[in-house]
């Protein structure tokens, strides 16, 4: 009885929602209030300044001047460089694996095991996992001990930790699964007959890959890039623990600014990153316009 009521309720809710006439507008209104308005407020703050834990209402470019003078903008650039570089690496690594997992893996049991193994780490705190790498890669850690025992080096290798290399290394494993999942999801949906058709039409394997499979996977690739790059940009644990404070990224730099309740600087840091991302996207559009480039991407998303 109760069950019928519930399912009836779900049904009528769904039927109304399915029309889509009010769903999206209603969502956009709520989203604007909850997200866009606060962000806009914060952006306004970047034209104010703080004095002793208080924001002073005196519009100026002071914050932005200091932003460039103190080299804080390099934090934004470094963040983008590492996030974009690492995302490209993950894409190269994850794309073949995700395809294999979706289509090439013979055993359903193995597939279930691999997906489980990829999911579990998300539940566990990243900092406790990362601090362990420090012990393993440090100058007296296991890796260096083994290297020295084997006579490969006489001195401990010091760049294994507290360098940009170690930040990349520390990011590789935690952000692999975020790239695999969306591509895997999309790849499972690819109709095998497309491949058949492609072969019948005389395409070689490479042509099939780039002309059939990659375009069909594009929505997943785009989602994967977002899933991977976005959290990496705000990454808070790995740059500090693996970079040892020497690789200053936006997460910690924002924290430093906020420790003096300096909202304007925190705002300018984010605004700067957003501006550069928009500029990159625009440049990409221009560069690839002739080939349908970014527009093609959006076409793939049916956008």
């Amino acid at each position: 009885m109760a069950n019928a009521l519930v399912s009836g309720g779900v049904r009528s809710w769904y039927t109304r929602a399915a029309s889509g006439r009010w769903t999206v507008p209603a969502f956009i209104i709520v989203w604007t209030v909850v997200v866009i308005v606060p962000l806009f407020l914060l952006l306004l703050y970047s034209f104010l300044e703080t004095k002793g834990f208080k924001v002073v209402w005196d519009p100026s470019f002071h914050t932005w001047d200091r932003f460039f003078e103190t080299g804080r903008w390099t934090v934004a650039m470094r963040t983008l460089r590492i996030a974009i570089g690492m995302t490209v690496i993950e894409l190269v690594l994850a794309f073949p694996f995700a395809l294999w997992l979706a289509k090439g893996c013979r055993s359903q049991g193995l597939k279930a095991i691999l997906l489980t193994l990829l999911t579990i780490p998300f539940f566990l705190d990243l900092s406790s996992r990362t601090i362990i790498w420090r012990a393993l890669l440090g100058s007296n850690g296991v890796v260096n001990t083994v290297l020295m025992e084997l006579g490969i080096t006489s001195e401990p290798v010091e760049w294994l930790i507290f360098t940009e290399f170690s930040v990349f290394f520390g990011l590789a494993a935690p952000y692999f699964a975020t790239m695999v999942f969306p591509i895997f999801l999309v790849a499972t949906l690819i109709d095998d007959e497309y491949l058949d058709a492609s072969r019948d039409l005389g395409a070689n394997p490479l042509q099939t890959l780039f002309l059939v499979i990659v375009p069909l996977c594009l929505p997943g690739v785009i989602a994967g890039v977002v899933f991977t790059m976005v959290p990496m940009m705000g990454e808070w644990v790995v740059p500090q623990l693996m970079g040892g404070g020497k690789v200053n990224m936006i997460g910690r730099s924002t924290e430093d600014a906020l420790s003096t309740l300096n909202y304007p600087t925190a705002a300018s840091l984010s605004a700067f990153v957003l501006a550069i991302l928009v500029a990159l996207l625009a440049a990409l559009t221009l560069l690839t316009r002739r080939r349908g480039g970014v527009a093609g991407l959006f076409e793939a998303l049916k956008l």
């Binding site: 606060p38 962000l39 914060l42 997460g251 909202y263």
Partner: peptide, 10 residues
């Protein structure tokens, strides 16, 4: 695309 602390502050 907005870091967590900044979104929290906003």
């Amino acid at each position: 695309f907005v870091p967590g602390l900044t979104m929290g502050a906003a």
